[in-house]
Amino acid sequence: MSAILVLIGFSLFVALVFLGAYIWAVKSGQYDDKYTPSVRMLFDDNKIESEKDKHKNT
């Protein structure tokens, strides 16, 4: 039966990690704006490229 205790402890630990991740996600504002990131994602490649260009030039 003590195996169960270990398992419970482990599962609780995993669950707590996820809870922590969730709270962090809320805190860092990921739930504030649920639309813009979906658009921004499409531009990211360009941004990086042009930043690279800048580095090349300097």
Binding site: L12, A15, F18, L19, Y22, I23, V26, Y31
Partner: peptide, 17 residues
Amino acid sequence: FKRLYYKIGIAGFSFGN
């Protein structure tokens, strides 16, 4: 809103376990 999200997260977590 943020507080509500925290609360529901914690409640859901406890509820499941």
